[in-house]
Design a protein around this nucleic acid. Sequence first.
DNA 1: GAATCACATAAGTCAATGCTTATCTGATCG
DNA 2: CGATCAGATAAGCATTGACTTATGTGATTC
Lengths: 103, 103
Amino acid sequence: MEDDIFKALADPTRRALFAKLATGARNATALREGMGISQPAVSQHIAVLRGAGLIREERAGRFVNYSVDPRGIEAIGRWFARYRAFWPDRIDDLRKLLGEMDQ
Amino acid sequence: MEDDIFKALADPTRRALFAKLATGARNATALREGMGISQPAVSQHIAVLRGAGLIREERAGRFVNYSVDPRGIEAIGRWFARYRAFWPDRIDDLRKLLGEMDQ
DNA sequence: GAATCACATAAGTCAATGCTTATCTGATCG
DNA sequence: CGATCAGATAAGCATTGACTTATGTGATTC
C-alpha cells in the first residue's frame, strides 16, 4: 500500500487534485475545474488516489463526493517518521506548532 | 523539486536504497548488496535520488560515499505539514515523541 | 419513459521509465 | 605504465503510465 501511495503522488496532476480536495470535499466535476484535462482523466486519477487510500468517496444521489482519507495521511506519516531524525532543524518548529494547537 | 522527490520515491527499489542509506552512509557497491540488480541500475537510481535532493555524495578516493540529504527530508516535511491536519489521532503520539527527545 | 447529467470503463496512442549489456572515466596499486 | 577496481554513461528493449475519444451505467428530471 505504501507503494500505491507513492506511485499515486508521483504524478503532479494527482497531487494537485489531492491538494484541492484537502481544501474541502467536492465532486468530480468541481474537482476538474481549471485542471485542463478530460473528464475520464479525472476519473482515472480519482481511481488511483482512492486505490492508494488517499481519498474516499461518498455517494450523494447523482453525485459522488470525494474527500481526503486520513488513513492515507497516517500511512505517509508512518513512513516519514522513519526519517524525521534527519530533520533536526525543524523539530523545534514542529514542537511550537503542536504547542499552538493546545490553545 | 517536489516533483522530483515524489517521482524518485515512486520506485520501490529506490525507496529500498534510500531506506538502506538511512541506516548509515555507504558506497554504491555496499548499497547494491542484496538488491538483485545490476551495478548500472544502482548508479542510475542513485542519480535520480541525488537529483531529487534526497541523498548526497562525498568522494573518498576511489569510492563515493552516499548519505541521506536532510534537505530532501525537509522538503517532504514541508509538503506533509500541509496535510497533518487530517491526522488528528496521531498528534498526541507525535507530541509524546517530541517530549521524549528532550531527555 | 426519454433525455440528460455525473461518473466509470474501454481501447488505443505516445512518452517516460527501469532494466539490461557494453563501454568509458578516473583513481589505486603492483 | 599496465591491470584492476568503483562508478558513470550509452544504447537498446520491454513495460508502465497518462492521456485522448468513444461508449457504458445509473440516477434525476421533465
